[in-house]
Write a protein that binds this DNA or RNA. Sequence first.
RNA 1: GGCGCCGUAGCCAAGUGGUAAGGCAGAGGUCUGCAAAACCUCCAUCCCCGGUUCGAAUCCGGGCGGCGCCUCCA
Length: 471
Amino acid sequence: MRLYNTLSRQEEDFVPSRDLTVRMYACGLTVYARGHIGNFRTFVAVDLLRRTLRHVAGFAVHHVTNFTDVDDKTINESHKAGVPLRDYTSRYIDAFREDAAALGLEPPEDTPRATDPGNLQAMSDMIAALGQRGHTYRSDGSIYFRISTLPAYGQLARLDHAGIVSGARIDSDKYEKEDARDFVLWKATPPGEPSWDLGVGPGRPGWHIECSAMALRLLGPGPIDIHCGGVDLIFPHHENEIAQAEGATGTPFSRFWFHVEHLLMDDGEKMSKSLGNVFTIRDILEQGYRASALRYLLISVHYRKQLRFSWATMQQAEEALRRIMDCVGRLGRVTDGSGTAGWEARLIAARDDFRQKLSADVNVPGALGAVFELLREANAAIDASTLSREEADATLAFFDGCDEVLGVLVLRRAEEAAPPIPQAELDDLLAARIEARRMRNFAEADRIRTALESRGIVLEDSAAGTIWKRK
RNA sequence: GGCGCCGUAGCCAAGUGGUAAGGCAGAGGUCUGCAAAACCUCCAUCCCCGGUUCGAAUCCGGGCGGCGCCUCCA
């Protein structure tokens, strides 16, 4: 398994450091609003990584994804809504789980909330450890990390001190810090805002501390194997996570850093809540597209390249997925076949190709190429009536094997489980049309076909009979 | 101002030194009552200019264009 590592800016061989279990942490959502498809691009990419590690590389996975349920935004929004913070953020955690299920994300082994008591305690303990090692100072009631005490600071983002300080956009109002790069660990809170005192005095966690503390708490001592997130987290979030974890423990935090590029809007701008140009999963579904197709679109561009979202590519994803589903349907209906020379070897080669592509830094687009090449040959073998029932089953097993990682057919099957009109009515209409065609009453046959199409059902006639499928 | 990524056919997208995967759309053909699906055929020399090399989309240099980070952000 080869994996690009932001730390080294290179592709490296990946093997978990302990046992055969990959210990991975992925930064999750700040739950003050519903996640948008840009957020989910990252989560889907992490899901593909996780599935590749499990089903291709053969490792077990212990995957942690957090919910940030305390920060300025969650506090402000819950105030506005007049709902207790915990209840307010719970709503968006539920919404996230709904969207994650729609996109077929495998549930991580742990999904901690920052404000769970044990996690807050772990943060407080880490800050205390940082204090003992001389990395902190207090100012205006808050506790800060003093960057100058950690010479290695900046190794991930590769920003030098001068570059940061001279940056034109440093907020000059934050003069309570000794150094522009210093960041808050534990934040003094005004009256009426959530506050905890677990050993380092009253306050609430700064943004970065939860991830360092929860990762080590749930995954065990560092270094963990892989830390994941969107590229925008490289600095300052991940850089600061490293500073906290390594400052507190003296041990490296994470061996690999896996960063997913942004999803851009059609106009080329980053999709983000602060820019207000966001689409949620629901928005996509309301336009008539399926979640399976959205997942397909999100995985069809390599995770380290920007993905520009458009309705045209959304439609292309629908069509590509339909092609796979049609082939799967045909394979299921194969009844005869004399046997296809070399078919078994062909399947093995396709499977190897698929796995090899994924093993090369999770090259999903390349792996999809392997699927479609095999697919065309399968269709040809069905056309030629050479494919045996056994070979058809083996081919279906190939697709299902691919889908253990791609996770897209399983979604589509669930979406299409029930016909869009009652089965009995559909059966009657199909029977009536078969009779009409038998009588060569094509006008009536076409009328039924057109009527069904307007209700979302497409009919296809062949020598073997008529099949229906969703439009 | 600093750092970094990217630029492959109408659209989407792999490939990172050995002579351009795949998907969508399009054209022609086969099959079909028709339609659809499927199959076959066709459809790019890789932003531009130099350089290195027997050989470059792939390496180096210089342009042009797009995006990101340096501030909350997946």
